[in-house]
């Protein structure tokens, strides 16, 4: 099990070829109160960098880009009633979607946790 991060503040955790994607705690803090999450359709085929989800906060709507290419396997149904989970539990219970990776080599371009924390400290 390993976790990777993007410069756009998404995280992806890989387990048995399936990636779970969310936004980082830093990102939710920047967005403020989240009121709605627009999730992708299950079964959709997406390419790395596509905007696949939108996180709506009181302030603004923000795109979420998929860190890897693949097929959307599942979305977090709990967010329909409780979008604030992304605020309170961004890096665990506030995950957005699961994706079946089509090219696991894309992970090599992402940051590990230590590199991401350093990246955020530099912002």
């Amino acid at each position: 099990m390993s976790r990777y991060f993007t410069e756009d503040h998404e995280w992806i955790e890989i387990e048995d070829g399936l990636g779970t994607v969310g936004i980082t705690d830093y990102a939710q803090g920047q967005l403020g109160d989240i009121t709605f999450v627009d999730l992708p359709a299950e079964g959709a085929s997406v390419a790395k960098g596509d905007s696949v989800s939108v996180v709506d906060s009181v302030k603004a709507a923000s795109d979420v880009y998929t860190p890897v290419s693949g097929t959307i396997a599942e979305v977090n149904a709990a967010l329909a009633d409780e979008p604030e989970l992304v605020n309170t539990d961004a890096e665990v219970g506030g995950w957005l979607f699961r994706i079946t990776l089509s090219d696991p080599a894309e992970l090599d371009a992402l940051m590990d946790e230590a590199a991401y924390r350093e990246f955020v400290n530099g912002l």
Binding site: T35, F36, D38, D56, A60, A61, P83
Partner: peptide, 8 residues
């Protein structure tokens, strides 16, 4: 608006 998605 219906639903929870905001229009800006």
């Amino acid at each position: 608006l219906e639903g929870r998605m905001a229009a800006r």
